[in-house]
Simulated scan of single mutants.
Amino acid sequence: MTKRRRRVVAGLSTVGLVGTTMAATFGAAPALAQDVSLPHTVVVSHLNNPRQLDLVPADDALLIAEAGRGGHQATITDPEGGKQGIGFTGSISLVLDPARSAGQRPHRIVTGLLSAGAAEAAPGQPVGSGAVGSDGVAANRLGSIAVQETYFPANLPANRQNGRLLLTRPYQSQKTSVANITAFERRHDPDGKGFDSDPYAVIDYRGGWLVADAAGNDVLKVSRTGAVSVFHVFPNVTTGPCASQYDPKKPFKGCNFVPTSMAADSHGNVYVGGLSSLTPGQGQVVELNARGHRVATWFGFSAVTGVALGRDGSVYVSQLFAPQAHPFNPQITGVLTRVHNGTRQNTDVPFPAGVAVDSHNNVYVSAWSIMPAGGAGIPGVDTSGQVWRLHF
């Protein structure tokens, strides 16, 4: 497994609650950031590694991409030497009337999606944690749901899902492959750094879709007929600590951008969040216009895993590894950041991922996004995968 792909897979499969104190490791927030303590409502809990969220206003619904909890179909070795179990436990969950819902259990309308999760338990890292698989979901109506499956570099029992953009319907076992994102990367290598693929996020876009290939460092455009083209290729980040790095190797100076999340506005502008190779403070959110050209960049984030837009022009950003202001456990990281009129507000969210904002500025965010339904086993605390609702 290459260094670039390792950025997402290792980041999700090994952080958990183990090892060093992440809050100390990842330094301080940008100078303009203000920490705020916001009350939240748990909309749904006991999810399996919840990732991207998508609101479907026409059906007053919220869709949740669950990366699953792995399984026993096959076993692969993750970048840190741990075992990942492969299975078909990925799913898409539905919440109706999300602005008023609370305390729900998962209502899974799509199941049987490919997933890889921790095959062995470790302290604070239960079986099924840090899963990757069905990480992205997009729909403009519930009758047609797009799911993005990541790529597993192994001989797997379901190659019709591996690395592909799928189209399906609620309660239907059939998943139609719209486009093989990984095959496009293998044939074209848009960033010129060698084959590496980890399709991670998808959004509906102008009659088709945009897909972020995290390891490929690009956003690809997919038509309704499955034609794939390049929308934008991200160069390496060469600021701060990234200036002295090479990624994936020499002569490629800097940190790979690693796009993980996207949102689009009504003008066709696309906002893309990147991990910047998990380098502290080097994560970015980039605004692209409808032609795929960069028009603005926000700096100073730590591992961006979710981006959403508010009607007032706010940009909401999940930072998986940003230090919390009031951590109840010093090894738990993560904040949700609102960027508005040049200022930033941070509120603590444990290991946040996907973000969505409705027309009333209710903000939905995946919390405990690296945990399966059983959680991490912390006494007295529900650490299962969840979706929170809050309001800045």
Rank of each mutant, 00 (worst) to 15 (best):
I76P: 03
I76Q: 05
I76E: 09
T77F: 00
T77K: 11
D78C: 04
P79E: 07
P79I: 02
P79A: 09
G81R: 10
G81L: 02
G82P: 00
G82W: 12
G82K: 14
K83S: 13
G85H: 05
G85I: 11
G85N: 08
I86M: 14
I86T: 09
I86E: 12
T89G: 09
T89M: 06
G90M: 04
G90H: 09
G90F: 06
S91R: 14
I92R: 01
I92T: 13
S93T: 09
S93M: 07
L94R: 11
L94N: 07
L94T: 06
L94H: 04
L96P: 00
P98D: 02
R100Y: 12
R100T: 14
S101M: 11
S101Q: 12
A102G: 11
G103F: 03
G103E: 11
Q104K: 14
R105M: 14
R108C: 07
R108T: 13
R108E: 13
I109W: 07
I109N: 04
V110Q: 00
V110H: 02
T111L: 06
T111R: 14
G112C: 10
G112K: 01
G112Y: 09
L113P: 04
S115V: 11
S115F: 05
A116K: 00
A116G: 12
G117V: 08
G117A: 04
A118C: 11
A119I: 04
A119N: 06
A119Q: 04
A121C: 05
P123D: 11
G124F: 01
G124W: 10
Q125R: 15
Q125H: 12
Q125D: 00
V127T: 12
V127W: 05
V127I: 14
G128M: 03
G128W: 06
S129C: 08
V132H: 08
G133R: 07
D135T: 15
D135I: 07
G136D: 09
V137Q: 11
V137G: 01
A138H: 06
A138V: 02
A138K: 06
A138N: 05
N140K: 13
N140V: 13
